[in-house]
Design a protein around this nucleic acid. Structure first.
Lengths: 144, 144
DNA sequence: TTATTTATGACAATATGTTGTCATTTTATA
DNA sequence: TATAAAATGACAACATATTGTCATAAATAA
């Protein structure tokens, strides 16, 4: 089997696991009134520890600006995110977590940690590292 | 960094690369009037080399039966797939490639092969193998 | 400074994908 | 065989995601 064929198999597996991870994420977050997609937005802001514009969040998530905008708008409406005036840009508001958003973010972190540990249990550090390297290499290749 | 944290990073990268691969697939297939999602359906049937039910295809793709049904219906309408009566089931038709579908499948295979080889170029066989192992292990963990 | 290019939000169209539900068919079980 | 359980297609509702377009704001270049 050539490397190209192996790669093709990897691609199909990425598609499959992506779907499964979204379902897992939906289950982990449902009791907080969130979804997998919205959790990612929360995580992007939470990780950066500072208010971000919608475009910033989209870039961090590797998704379209427009799709991210819709998620952010919905989350603002739901009260987990808030918009701040941006001194550097008249239209591009800064998005931050509300108190409730912060609380959910922290509680979800507590939920996610043991889940991730369980998922990683039967994988070695080297395996995880290699898989990550491969995916990052692909992301870099496709990002232009 | 714990294995769990490493795993979390891997998950985020899977999300990102999944989106990028869909965009790549859309570009590779657009001149054939297809999309990434429909190409996967074509590939599932093409690989099995025999007519499949919609449920079969959904299982192979690791996606919902209903979503797959919609793709198949659209592709039948577009003339790349055809439905056959199934001697084993009154309602579950067998889906097969039409002549045109077969032609597109083969031409796409020619397009995809050098693309995959190029993607895999800077990755070793061991890296690909390990990444595949990790993802398959996750798929297995989540599939129940 | 002025003109051009780029970035951004807003809105819409379309494709993709999951979940839920129902009726029907098939399969498994008692 | 008769009943219960599971599988399947059909249809709908909803969430997610990309692409396209437009007007405006910001950054860059001339």
């Amino acid at each position: 089997m050539t490397k190209g064929e192996k790669f093709t198999e990897l691609v199909l597996e990425i598609f499959k696991v992506n779907g499964m991870l979204n379902i897992e994420g939906d289950q982990l977050t449902s009791s907080f009134g969130l979804t997998s997609a919205r959790w990612k937005v929360l995580g992007a802001i939470g990780l950066e520890q500072r208010p971000l514009t919608v475009s910033d969040i989209a870039r961090l998530m590797g998704q379209s600006r427009q799709g991210t905008q819709r998620l952010v708008d919905a989350m603002v409406k739901d009260g987990v995110l808030a918009m701040l005036d941006n001194p550097n840009h008249k239209r591009a508001k800064l998005i931050q977590l509300t108190i409730e958003g912060q609380k959910i973010y922290e509680e979800l972190d507590e939920t996610q940690r043991p889940w991730a540990a369980d998922c990683a249990e039967h994988l070695s550090n080297e395996q995880l590292e290699t898989a990550l390297t491969v995916l990052k290499s692909l992301a870099k290749k496709f990002e232009s």
